[in-house]
């Protein structure tokens, strides 16, 4: 443990930066000036989270509602812990068993929740654009925790925080994002944020899982891991949805693992000392070999989970810094 002075409300307030937008819907809501400040704030929260006393009152009296239309244990608990540590009251809506299943539209749900006056709504939904739609209909801040295959911006921020802590400067990095790019909101948010911060991004995957026009995102596209990984500082693996296997987009999991699954042999094609990331949850033996995933000398995967709470605390705190005292 470090011997630094304990992190308190006061030290956080000194490093607090107002979020650039009223909502956090996409990585493009950030900008190259505020992002380093958010990373700095994230650093402070990492230190804070490692203390034994983890209670702040930045969001005291505020209500954060977690609205998860898709099941996700890790992201919803990450948001819940982040909000609770900031002192907010947190409600996690059991959407799967609520009236949403009875045909109530997203808008109806939004209007109903809005009337209960939450301060921040965290939403995950299976439809692209759902967070954007919700933000138009409510009076509180909306944080996108994943909308369809569109964006998952807090994931990109936590990945950036992990890279920032592992490498320091992220601007000179070459990052390979590998796997199912087409269906991945994590890929879209990461491409946008990494490029915004000056990193070079490559996309690697079978042609059926990489969009045909991905080259227009300003990324280099590869279908061969050996070629694509050459000179990469970071290998970011994506989760492969198992329902997309079995002949639909790739012939089988074993064939996928043979050509695109990350193991020692393939990792050796990247730059020496390259780091491995994965947004989780992992399909071990499909897109990543346990041998690599669990090797803490190369894998940042556990760090990512830790950074998730800190990055989300930074987002929630900076959103609240916009409000002032009038609210």
């Amino acid at each position: 443990m470090t011997q630094a002075a304990p992190v308190t409300d006061q030290t956080i307030r000194e490093r607090l930066v107002p979020f650039p937008k009223a909502h956090f819907l996409a990585a493009s809501d950030l900008n190259p000036f505020v992002t380093p400040q958010l990373l700095d704030l994230g650093d402070a929260f990492v230190d804070f989270n490692r203390q034994s006393s983890k209670a702040l009152d930045l969001l005291h009296g505020r209500t954060v509602v977690n609205l998860f239309f898709e099941n996700s244990t890790r992201t919803s608990s990450s948001f819940e812990i982040a909000a609770k540590r900031l002192g907010a009251d947190v409600v996690t809506m059991p959407v799967a068993s609520s009236s949403v299943k009875k045909g109530e539209t997203l808008i109806d749900t939004a209007v109903t929740l809005n009337a209960m006056k939450p301060d921040i709504l965290v939403i995950r939904h299976s439809a692209s654009g759902a967070a954007e739609l919700l933000s138009q209909k409510v009076g509180c801040a909306v944080v996108n925790a994943g909308d369809g295959r569109h964006e998952h911006p807090t994931q990109a921020l936590l990945d950036l925080l992990s890279l920032h802590r592992a490498f320091g400067d992220v601007t000179s990095l070459t990052v390979a994002i590998c796997g199912d790019i087409t269906h991945s909101r994590v890929a879209r948010s990461n491409v946008a944020l990494l490029q915004m911060m000056g990193a070079r991004v490559r996309l690697i995957g079978p042609p059926t899982l990489v969009p045909g026009d991905a080259d227009r995102w300003g990324c280099e596209v590869f279908h061969d891991m050996r070629e694509g990984l050459q000179g990469c500082d970071v290998v970011m693996m994506l989760r492969l949805q198992l329902e997309r296997m079995a002949g639909a987009l790739v012939p089988s999991t074993r064939e996928y693992f043979r050509f695109w699954g990350l193991d020692r042999e393939k990792l050796a094609w990247a730059k020496p000392g390259a780091k491995v990331m994965h947004p989780g949850p992992m399909n071990r033996g499909v897109e990543i070999d346990s041998d690599v995933a669990d090797d803490l000398s190369v894998s940042l995967i556990q760090d990512q989970v830790e950074m998730g709470v800190a990055a989300r605390m930074a987002v929630l705190a900076s959103l609240s810094a916009r409000w002032g005292d009038a609210r």
């Binding site: 692209s128 654009g129 909308d147 295959r149 909101r185 045909g212 026009d213 227009r216 995102w217």
Partner: peptide, 11 residues
């Protein structure tokens, strides 16, 4: 319509 826009929007 298939294209860069739809891909970016995740549609």
């Amino acid at each position: 319509a298939s294209g860069e826009l739809a891909t970016r929007l995740g549609l």
